[in-house]
């Protein structure tokens, strides 16, 4: 083996892609050739140094991402139908409208569950807007920054009754 062969196939050697016999030939060349041994050393040390320079994400990376996702168009969930594709705003507005349509009554807690297509998504309607004030049915945008679609979990659902909004999607409205 000469130095040109060594350099040409160095990647295979470095990535342990060579059969054992060929690898032995490479090792033997490294023992004999100072120039190729230096090449190998420089590359390994350079790689090690480069790996030490990984930048750390800022501490507020995830909170900022949550805020961005609040305003991002909705993801299409597995059970999504063309209705769902119609847009997040339609669904979110439908959810809020649905809450207004039903009088929850004092002291009651309401949760909304979007039913998209034939299957409920189990994401609350408020997930992308912010928490809903359950007495008024309004979305509290003031608290939206502390309320994240990344952290929301479906509220505990109780016996439900359905309300048709006439907006192509059904909102199941659950009351205590």
């Amino acid at each position: 083996m000469d130095c040109t062969d060594f350099i040409d196939r160095y990647s295979d050697y470095d990535d342990s892609l060579l059969p054992p016999r060929e690898e032995a030939v490479f090792r033997a060349h490294l023992d004999l050739c100072e120039a190729c041994a230096r090449y190998d050393r420089v590359l390994r040390k350079g790689r090690m140094l480069a790996r030490q320079m990984d930048p750390e994400p800022t501490a507020d990376f995830i909170p900022r991402l949550r805020l961005r996702l609040l305003t991002a168009p909705e993801p299409r969930l597995m059970a999504a139908s063309p209705v769902a594709a119609g847009g997040f705003l339609t669904l979110a507005l439908a959810a809020v409208l649905g809450l207004w349509l039903v009088d929850a009554g004092p002291g009651s807690r309401a949760t909304a569950e979007l039913q998209i297509g034939s299957r409920a998504t189990s994401l609350p309607a408020s997930a992308y807007l912010g928490p809903v004030d359950w007495t008024t049915g309004r979305v509290d945008r003031g608290r939206a920054s502390s309320y994240s679609p990344l952290e929301i979990g479906p509220p505990a659902y109780r016996a439900s009754r359905s309300v048709s909004t006439g907006l192509s999607s059904t909102i199941s409205h659950t009351l205590d």
Binding site: I62, L65, L77
Partner: peptide, 28 residues
């Protein structure tokens, strides 16, 4: 990813936590 698509929003947090530093390094 499947959990998220099935409605488990917290699954996305886990993916974001898992990959944001690696992707930052790559893009940087």
């Amino acid at each position: 990813a499947a959990e998220f698509l099935a409605g488990e929003a917290r699954a996305f947090t886990v993916l974001a936590d898992r990959y944001h530093a690696r992707l930052l390094n790559f893009i940087y």
